[in-house]
Amino acid sequence: TDCSIVSFLARLGCSSCLDYFTTQGLTTIYQIEHYSMDDLASLKIPEQFRHAIWKGILDHRQLHEF
């Protein structure tokens, strides 16, 4: 599957948040998979999107835990 942040955000309906990640040089889900809610806040992601992205990260982690 596509591991880009572009497609990750698109699946979550949060494509408008892409610039918050790319300006930090973040391009793949693996770069953010251990981010906390505070990390997302420090990227200045608007609160209404933060929870959806956080949930997406948690779902991603569960899929990749062996």
Score class of each variant (00 low, 15 high):
S16G: 12
H51W: 09
D2Q: 05
A41M: 07
M37D: 05
Y30G: 14
F21W: 00
L18I: 11
Q48L: 09
F8C: 02
H60Q: 12
L18H: 05
S4D: 09
K44T: 09
S4N: 07
T1N: 10
L12I: 15
F8D: 00
Q62L: 10
S36G: 12
Q24R: 12
F21N: 00
Y35L: 10
G56E: 04
T28L: 07
L58N: 10
T23W: 06
D19C: 07
T23C: 11
L40H: 01
S16D: 13
K55R: 09
L12E: 03
Q31I: 01
R61E: 10
P46L: 00
T1Q: 11
K44G: 15
A41F: 06
T27M: 06
T28E: 12
A10H: 05
S42M: 14
H34E: 14
Y35W: 14
S36W: 02
L43W: 03
A41Y: 06
L9T: 00
L12A: 08
S42I: 15
L40D: 01
T27W: 05
G25E: 08
H51K: 13
D38V: 15
P46I: 00
T27V: 10
W54H: 03
D38E: 15
F49A: 11
D39N: 07
L18E: 13
K44N: 12
T1K: 05
H34P: 04
S16F: 06
C17E: 03
D38F: 08
I5G: 01
L63R: 10
S36Q: 10
F49I: 04
S7W: 05
L40E: 00
A52G: 07
Q48C: 08
I53G: 00
P46H: 02
K55P: 01
T28D: 12
F21C: 00
L63N: 10
L58S: 14
G56F: 02
D38S: 11
F66D: 05
F21T: 00
S16L: 07
S16P: 14
R50C: 09
E33M: 11
F66T: 05
L12F: 05
M37I: 07
R11I: 05
H64Y: 07
F21H: 00
D38R: 11
R61S: 11
D2R: 04
A41I: 14
T28C: 04
S4C: 04
K44W: 05
G25P: 01
D39L: 04
R50H: 11
K55T: 07
D2K: 06
R61I: 09
L43Y: 02
I5V: 06
T28G: 08
L9I: 02
Y30A: 13
I57D: 00
E47F: 05
F8N: 01
L18G: 07
R50M: 14
I32W: 01
L9W: 00
G56R: 02
I57P: 00
C14G: 03
L26Q: 03
Y35E: 01
L18A: 14
I5E: 00
L12G: 02
L18S: 13
C14N: 03
S42W: 06
I45D: 00
P46F: 01
H34I: 03
F8P: 00
L43H: 03
P46E: 05
K44Q: 13
D59F: 07
I53Y: 01
S42N: 15
C3N: 12
C17L: 07
L58A: 14
E33L: 09
S4Q: 07
G56Q: 03
T28P: 01
Y30C: 15
S4V: 02
S42Y: 08
S15M: 08
C3K: 08
E47L: 12
Q48G: 12
I57F: 04
S15E: 08
W54S: 09
C3Y: 14
G25Q: 06
E47N: 13
A52V: 13
E47K: 13
Y20R: 10
L12T: 09
C3P: 10
E33N: 06
H64V: 13
I53W: 02
T1L: 13
D38A: 14
T27P: 01
E65R: 08
L26M: 06
A52Q: 14
Q62K: 12
A41S: 10
C14K: 05
D2G: 06
E65L: 07
Q62N: 09
F66A: 15
D38P: 06
T28F: 09
S15P: 07
T23Y: 06
F8Q: 01
D59I: 07
T23H: 15
L9E: 02
F49T: 05
S7T: 13
L18C: 15
S4T: 10
T1R: 04
Y35H: 06
K55I: 04
L40M: 05
T22W: 06
L40W: 01
D19F: 07
I57R: 02
C3G: 08
L26H: 04
H34V: 03
V6P: 07
L26Y: 05
L9G: 02
G56T: 02
F49R: 06
L12S: 05
L43R: 03
F66G: 04
G25A: 06
R11E: 11
F21D: 00
D2S: 06
D59Q: 12
G13C: 04
H51S: 15
D59S: 10
I53T: 01
E65N: 12
P46D: 03
H34A: 11
R11V: 04
T23K: 14
R50P: 01
L58W: 10
S16E: 11
Y30M: 12
T27L: 07
V6I: 11
Q31F: 02
C17P: 01
T22I: 12
I53L: 06
S36N: 15
D19W: 09
L63A: 15
L12V: 10
L43G: 01
T23A: 12
L43Q: 02
L12Q: 08
L18Y: 10
R61C: 08
E65C: 12
Y30K: 14
R61V: 08
E65F: 05
S4M: 09
H64I: 09
F49Q: 12
F49C: 10
P46V: 00
M37T: 08
G13L: 02
L9N: 01
W54I: 12
V6A: 15
E33R: 10
S42K: 14
K44Y: 07
R50W: 05
I45E: 02
C3I: 11
C14F: 06
D38T: 11
S7K: 12
L9R: 01
F66V: 15
H60R: 15
I53E: 01
S42F: 14
E33S: 09
S7M: 06
D19L: 07
F8R: 00
L40R: 00
S7R: 07
I32L: 09
S15N: 11
A52T: 11
V6W: 08
K55Y: 07
Q24A: 12
W54R: 05
R11D: 07
Y20V: 06
C14M: 13
A10N: 05
F8L: 09
A52P: 10
I29K: 03
I45G: 01
L26T: 03
R11N: 07
F8W: 12
L58K: 14
H34S: 14
D2A: 05
Q31H: 10
H64E: 15
F49P: 09
L26C: 04
M37W: 08
A41V: 14
